[in-house]
């Protein structure tokens, strides 16, 4: 099959359509990350480096969010890294599902995120699962990075994070990231535990650290509950 034919077959597939629309939707909120990153004190190029190299939205927001709240680089690194642990699980799942040849794994790993995993798992046919992963991963990568640059330049032009309610945008972004994960009683209970822990410890520890304490408490709560209810 020629390259052009392969491309035509891809473009006609349901996985392509889903991947592209997820890419477009994610690209649209790239600017919100760029603007928030710059308003948290990162430079335009640091914001762009995070999108190009870290490339996992939740962790990027966390990194900027911790710094914006006055946290140290160490606290920002910890929060971002813990939040990206789930990508490791996705990698495990994608390897089992897509059976990629070893040479493509380093590239696949970089685009292993919520969106590519979601698009791939939504397909039933193995060929479509691969197409979904690649299409969503690349579409999100390109548009997310473009969006970040635009937003970072915009954020730089705005300057003060309080102007135009950029700090309110950060609150909205975090609850927007959390919301889809609150399905069922357990996640809601865990979210409440984490929120309460944060409120309690904020006055006593440096900025950024409450997030790590909340993460530890939530993990312990899950393990305890797991033991009680196997």
């Amino acid at each position: 099959m020629s390259l052009a034919e392969t491309f035509r077959t891809w473009r006609a597939s349901p996985a392509w359509r889903m991947g592209m629309s997820i890419g477009a939707a994610t690209g649209l909120y790239g600017p919100s990350f760029g603007a928030l990153a710059v308003s948290s004190g990162l430079s335009v190029w640091q914001a762009c480096a995070l999108s190009a190299l870290m490339f996992t939205g939740g962790s990027q927001f966390a990194f900027a969010g911790v710094l914006g709240g006055g946290g140290t680089g160490l606290a920002a690194w910890s929060a971002a890294s813990l939040l990206s642990v789930r990508n490791g699980i996705y990698g495990l799942e994608m390897k089992a599902m897509l059976r990629p040849p070893t040479p493509v794994i380093p590239a696949m790993a970089q685009i292993t995120i919520d969106e590519s995993m979601g698009t791939s798992s939504a397909q039933t046919d193995p060929v479509e699962q691969r197409r979904g992963f690649v299409t969503a991963g690349i579409a999100v990568y390109v548009l997310w990075n473009l969006g970040t640059l635009l937003g970072a330049l915009l954020g730089q032009a705005i300057g003060d994070p309080k102007a135009f309610g950029l700090d309110g945008a950060a609150s909205a972004a975090f609850i927007g990231l959390l919301w889809p994960r609150l399905k069922g009683r357990d996640p809601i209970a865990l979210a409440v535990i984490a929120a309460a822990t944060t409120i309690i410890v904020v006055p006593f520890v440096p900025p950024g650290v409450p997030i790590l304490i909340a993460a530890a408490v939530t993990t312990v709560a899950t393990l305890v509950q797991q033991r009680r209810r196997p």
Binding site: G58, G69, V85, F174, L177, P210, I211, T218, T219, T222
Partner: peptide
């Protein structure tokens, strides 16, 4: 554990980005 960690971190980030300024709890437009 991985999903609990994600929920816990995000919920905590909601609180710190909405209710705190440095080490203080504050109620404002956020």
């Amino acid at each position: 554990t991985a999903s609990a960690l994600t929920v816990g971190l995000l919920a905590s980030l909601v609180v710190t980005n909405t209710l705190t300024t440095g080490q203080h709890l504050v109620l404002d437009s956020r």
